[in-house]
Design a protein around this nucleic acid. Structure first.
Lengths: 219, 219
DNA sequence: CAATGTATGTACTAGTTAGTTAGTTATACG
DNA sequence: CGTATAACTAACTAACTAGTACATACATTG
């Protein structure tokens, strides 16, 4: 009867595997919290979408809030690991800015759950991030890369010398986050889907132009 | 005993005044929904913070969701009414852009509840805005003003001619919304409060420069 | 001033939801 | 091979929460 499909998502009991159970719960939790928020997500529903039971959530994460914090940590560390792969050191400063901006842009588009979790965490005044040691001490590869580009551009007298890396990072994030996070209300009001694939290249180029023209203004 | 302080927030029964009861409930609801989100807000708590009872919420708004939609509508129409007062027609295009940008900037800073409601509504995929006739047909004074500025700038050959008003509006919004909406996680990670009054002028000028340099690039 | 509808308060309820109690099964290890 | 312990399940509970039934006071108007 029971055919053995070794890696099917929610089939056989799959024996006992602590790490697998834990990570399956986490994956489901990320999706649920991102979809409905902390208060809107239901522990029972998260459990039902895994192969295990609610009891295991309490066993591994202590409670709803512990699960939420772990989900946040997992989402953040995953994103940061991806960012670490960015390599723009070999490009000239202007090209490096365009590349970094484009990568950030694509990145945000392909991780909507992460963006939603960040929005939700802001609604909670970042209370959980502040409480998490993991998240407090997380390195920021994208900002580091940006800082080095700006230094090179400035040394080569190609960029203005009065800009702060965090401010530039903020500009880029603002645009990319807004496009994803505010997609729905923006579309409802302006009848324009900022994530329409037909407009993707236009917006990716636009944010690159925007930042680069700011950095090279008057030069 | 009971001293009559005519306008104290939560004192005497104040007789029967439908309009007053309704608007008091709405004001409290806006704050509660903005603070805790739709799922996180509690009907009982909203009622407790008014001078009336939960019964009245159901009497006037039908239910929690009806109240939430009314709160959204109230917040949006209030903001739009303010935007309507923007007058930049007498300024030259560049100055008008700076002025409009600065107004938008200050505007977002002084209405955090509105920004939070928009974030929350995006978490709900703008489902309620889409359902509301009031919100669907609301005029957009800020975009209209921007459109006219861009036309004037373009006619005077001061601005590039390949920019779309909605895109420019999006840039400005992105920056201003991000600064308010993502304040908490940004501060937790970069240890920089984007709303620190000491940095306000810097950021207000920065968004003006950013937009203006984009619009006048190569000119 | 009767009467009719609007506005309001009190007390309740049915359903939900986070968290728990009490136990069972598999696996590692001596 | 047996036993300690980690991994796991099912059923339960106490508290909460949106929504309602019922009663009533006030005000307007004929």
């Amino acid at each position: 009867m029971a055919t053995q499909t070794p890696d099917s998502p929610a089939a056989a009991p799959a024996g006992r595997d602590a790490e697998r159970t834990r990570s399956e719960i986490l994956a489901v939790a990320i999706r649920e919290f991102a979809d409905k928020g902390f208060a809107g997500a239901r522990v029972d529903e998260i459990a039902a979408k895994t192969r295990t039971t609610k009891r295991m959530i309490y066993y591994y994460f202590g409670g709803k809030e512990g699960l939420y914090i772990s989900a946040l940590e997992q989402a953040y560390t995953g994103i940061r690991a991806l960012e670490q792969q960015v390599d723009v050191e070999h490009l000239d400063p202007a090209e490096a800015i365009r590349r970094l901006t484009a990568l950030t842009f694509d990145h945000h588009e392909s991780h909507p759950d992460f963006i939603r979790l960040v929005s939700i965490e802001n609604i909670h005044y970042a209370r959980h991030i502040a409480r998490s040691e993991i998240l407090a001490g997380l390195a920021n590869p994208a900002l580091d890369a940006l800082t080095r580009i700006l230094e090179r551009g400035r040394a080569a007298h190609r960029f203005r010398d009065d800009v702060d890396p965090i401010d530039v990072h903020m500009m880029i994030s603002a645009f990319c986050v807004f496009r994803t996070a505010n997609r729905y209300t923006f579309n409802a009001i302006f009848k324009r889907d900022m994530l329409d694939p037909a407009r993707r290249d236009h917006y990716r180029a636009m944010i690159g132009d925007l930042v680069l023209e700011y950095l090279t203004a008057g030069r």
